[in-house]
């Protein structure tokens, strides 16, 4: 009997090793697609997270409010003076928008590459395993979220949707980007300088921007925005400012370190960006899925 038991233990051991290896291999190849079981589990847990997180968030908000009350008077003074400027600015923007629309209709352009529809979402959790820079938000496929959409905060771009279930979706932060998740970017002041964001440097906390053409016009302090040419993101999402420039390892092109504009740690509310113009990556995928159904 003991020998049989020992044998059984060995069999259990080997089968579990095989299962684990299969699981790892299976999940390595999975790209953004989630099946119904996974979606159901993430949504159920998401519901519980929502229930726990809302009161917690409320109390944090309360303590913040108490702090804010002290500064209210000063802020009010500053805001009043800014309001005057804002009024004239709003008037100007209205005029420009009208003019822009008229000119566009003259040229028969309906949608621009920079147009998008925002989907507002609240963060309900962050992955406890910090090797994965992921957060979870409370909007999913039912609200129109699809994998690969860009995600921004008021400060700038923070990442993209890596998988979406019915009620929640998971966002991959820019700090977890690697060569598999590239962003096509351009320098705002100079259209000749374009390239790819290719990863994140953990030591310096900066994004790596590789220029595609060696224009020699890459400089510190330039602002980097998404170019909209990658097929997923609209044009004009703020990514960051260049903090330093260096030659790449082969000495052929220039690499720049980009200081991200957004804060990746303190995130509460995000905007998921649904690009208006046809996107081969986001829209095609759903069409294929619909055909399968």
């Amino acid at each position: 009997m003991p020998r049989f038991l020992r044998k059984r233990k060995l069999i259990v051991f080997f089968t579990s090793i095989i299962i684990v290896v299969i699981l790892i291999g299976f999940s390595l190849n999975r790209s953004g697609q989630t099946n119904i079981v996974t979606q159901f589990i993430t949504d159920t847990v998401g519901l519980a997270q929502n229930i726990v997180y809302q009161p917690v968030q409320f109390f944090i908000g309360l303590t913040d409010n108490v702090k804010d009350i002290r500064d209210v008077y000063k802020q009010n003074e500053v805001l009043k003076s800014e309001l005057q400027e804002y009024k004239t600015l709003a008037f100007k923007v209205n005029e420009l928008e009208k003019e822009n629309e008229e000119l566009r209709s003259l040229l028969n352009i309906d949608v621009l590459i920079s147009d998008y529809t925002p989907i507002r979402a609240t963060v309900i959790s962050r992955s406890p395993e910090q090797f994965f820079d992921q957060i979870k938000v409370n909007k999913g496929q039912l609200h129109g979220v699809k994998p690969n959409m860009a995600v921004i905060t008021a400060d700038g771009m923070i990442g993209k949707v890596s998988s979406a279930s019915q009620m929640t979706s998971v966002i991959q932060l820019l700090s977890g980007f690697d060569e598999h998740n590239r962003i096509s970017v351009v320098v705002e002041e100079n259209e000749n300088v374009f390239g790819l964001i290719e990863g994140f440097n953990n030591d310096t906390q900066t994004l790596l921007f590789r220029e595609l053409e060696n224009s020699g016009e890459l400089e510190e302090g330039q602002t980097v925005i998404s170019s909209g040419l990658g097929g997923m993101f609209p044009r004009g999402l703020l990514i960051g400012t260049i903090s330093s420039v260096e030659l790449d390892q082969y000495g052929l092109t220039q690499m720049a370190h980009v200081e991200p504009a957004a804060d990746f740690i303190d995130i509460n509310h995000v905007i998921i960006v649904d690009r208006d113009i046809f996107s081969p990556i986001i829209d095609d995928e759903t069409e294929i899925e619909e055909e399968e159904e």
């Binding site: 726990v52 917690v56 962050r126 992955s127 406890p128 090797f131 740690i265």
Partner: peptide
């Protein structure tokens, strides 16, 4: 265990950002 599973992710969000910015990994 299920309650702990949910609390794990929420406490990470509650930690002050000055601690998270230290580059250290605190995995619950």
């Amino acid at each position: 265990l299920f309650i702990l599973l949910i609390l794990e992710s929420i406490t990470i969000n509650l930690l002050p950002s000055s601690i998270l910015a230290l580059d250290l990994y605190y995995i619950p």
